Amino acid sequence: MSDEPEFGKVVVFGVGLIGGSFALGLKATEQVDEVVGFGRSLATLKQALDLGIIDRVGANAGQEVADADLVLIASPVGQMPEIMARIAPYLGAQTVVTDGGSTKMDVVASAREHFGDKIGQFVPAHPIAGAENSGAAAARADLYREKKVVLTPLPENTVLNVARVRSAWEWCGAQVHELSPSAHDRIFAAVSHLPHLLSFALVYDLAVREDCDQFFSYAASGFRDFSRISASHPEMWRDICLANRQALLEELDRYRAHLDVLRDALDKGDGDVLERTFDVARKARRDWAEGKVK
């Protein structure tokens, strides 16, 4: 560890699970002098201050980002364009901006619109370390330890700016990878956004039934594991699904096609089709769980 912290001042928009854990991760490794927080709720900001996540509550966004080393936009993706518009005119020449959004094509489009010729100062990122709980109280310093963070660098980014963002996440303990924005959105539509949509749909289907209490009273570990992510933040996942809707629609159509195959097999009593499908899924899931798929 160096004697001097790598980052003097870090400004975080959104001090909940993602932004708060980022701040705590840098603080735990003593790689930041000061963290300034912004958010929609004064109560959340006060909680973040009391928990030591931030050192100050920001009052003037333009003034704070002008001399910041690093800015993290950790709000729901639907709120990012407004934040970008607020800070773009005031960015210091050496200030690097990144984000924690779960979609990238829409975030990059907004960044290009609002940052203009400063787009090289924006390095998109996505930490793969969410949880069903949200808010400042859910933040923790080790959230990103041994977790993946995906950077989707832009052609305008300098090597130094990408390295600074990479370094920040690595100080938080993350394993940093790179994808293009389009590849990112295609992949995460399948392995993140679709599972959330399905989990929300299943729990909703049960919740609106007249005898829902009876169903929930008999639900056990299988339901608990599958439905865990339906406890995630509704606003955040609304924004994610809409932002990545084209890729998500494609994945949903593929999934529906597989469901139709299984439904047909059930209707015909075709156990061979069911078993073959289950066997492929079982092997793939075990290989992934055992670390055979990197």
Score class of each variant (00 low, 15 high):
Phe216Lys: 08
Trp171Asn: 06
Ala219Pro: 12
Cys172Glu: 07
Glu146Cys: 05
Phe216Val: 09
Met1Ile: 12
Ala138Phe: 03
Asp67Trp: 12
Gly271Gln: 14
Ile187Val: 15
Asp239Leu: 12
Lys27His: 07
Pro76Tyr: 03
Arg254Met: 14
Glu64Phe: 11
Thr103Pro: 14
Ala23His: 02
Ser232Gln: 11
Leu249Ser: 13
Ala88Arg: 00
Arg238Thr: 11
Pro195Ser: 06
His114Leu: 00
Glu132Ile: 07
Asn133Leu: 14
Leu249Pro: 04
Ile83Pro: 05
Phe13Val: 07
Phe38His: 06
Tyr90Thr: 04
Val176Tyr: 01
His233Pro: 10
Glu156Val: 08
Val65Cys: 03
Asp67Ala: 15
Thr103Asp: 02
Leu160Cys: 11
Phe122Asp: 00
Ala139His: 07
Val12Gly: 10
Val107Trp: 13
Val36Gln: 08
Ala48Phe: 03
Gly58Leu: 13
Lys268Phe: 09
Arg164Pro: 08
Gly222Met: 13
Ala28Asn: 12
Val35Thr: 12
Gly58Tyr: 09
Ala281Tyr: 03
Ile240Ala: 08
Phe223Cys: 06
Leu17Ser: 02
Gly101Ile: 13
Arg209Tyr: 07
Val108Glu: 02
Gly222Ala: 06
Lys148Tyr: 08
Gln246Asp: 15
Gly92Gln: 09
Gly173Trp: 10
Ser221Gly: 14
Asn133His: 14
His193Asn: 06
Ser192Pro: 09
Glu156His: 00
